[in-house]
Design a protein around this nucleic acid. Structure first.
Lengths: 157, 157
DNA sequence: CTATAATTGGATGTTGATGTCTATTATTGC
DNA sequence: GCAATAATAGACATCAACATCCAATTATAG
């Protein structure tokens, strides 16, 4: 129901929120979230263009959130990469309907409205704070550190 | 948020429900719902394979609903052509998560659950009976008859 | 049995989403 | 200024969704 791109964008944002306000490199995010790095860079570009994240080139640079996790909601992220566009006029182009949708399209739009609302009411801070037995994107909370340590790995051979 | 194919399938089913229990030809449905006929035939094939509609070849044949409009819900139609597949295990393949989703994926799955539920609770009969000022797929209720009369049209030239 | 109506199945084309690769530009530390 | 780091831009590749077309098959009416 949601595109792969939305899934990737949300993973990346969760990781960034988890490290907020520190920046992460695209490579770090890609490894931590298991998203193809080259494609992730495209997704992050969309997020930057929508002013959801900020980017900084060069040493010590990377991607960071523009807002704090408690000010950023899921809808802003989703809409940046694959907008939930509500049905505002008859998809059949019937003049008589105009802005007044028929029962079928009302139902469909209602489903989108509910989803849109659920996303707009959920902040990244809430996602991080949720108390379930699974930590976001990691097997164990301790894994977060492992991932951050990893870049300094010497060539295997 | 929903695919074009889902939109087409629902339009076709609404038209069929509106004419139920009489069959409609693919051509009739295509014209009434403004769906490309050749593609519609593929969509109808999916619906037949899922046993949502029944097809009959030859003169007087066409497509008809297997159930009555009050026994058929939107979810059955949607799932026949583009299934809403819930998140049942961690998309990152993390062993530690298994069936126990992290907060992010819980949220996403929850959105799907709500949509799934809304569709499963809505029957075609309800769609047809909804009292809004717009009739399903038509400018005016009277248009339905116009469409049905149309097939007997002589060659324009 | 024949003509006609109608679905069915397969081949094919088109477009957008997804994914990869390489060269370029900006930033930092020396 | 030079080297290392990291994002950026654009070209290219791949695949599935969407769409079209046509021949084959099946059913009905007469």
């Amino acid at each position: 129901m949601f595109s792969q791109t939305v899934e990737y964008a949300l993973r990346a944002i969760v990781h960034l929120a988890d490290n907020s306000p520190n920046p992460c490199t695209t490579e770090q995010i890609a490894k931590a979230t298991k998203v193809p790095q080259a494609y992730l860079s495209k997704v992050l570009q969309s997020l930057r263009q929508s002013n959801v994240v900020h980017s900084q080139r060069g040493i010590g640079g990377g991607i960071s959130l523009v807002k704090t996790p408690d000010e950023l909601n899921l809808l802003e992220v989703v809409n940046a990469v694959d907008p939930i566009c509500r049905i505002t006029s008859c998809p059949l182009g019937l003049k008589g309907h105009g802005t007044n949708l028929c029962p079928l399209h009302r139902k469909l739009d209602e489903a989108m409205r509910v989803t849109e609302h659920a996303f707009s009411e959920t902040t990244l801070a809430e996602i991080l704070a949720s108390s379930t037995s699974s930590y976001p994107l990691c097997n164990e909370p301790e894994d977060r550190l492992t991932i951050l340590r990893e870049p300094a790995k010497p060539p295997a051979k």
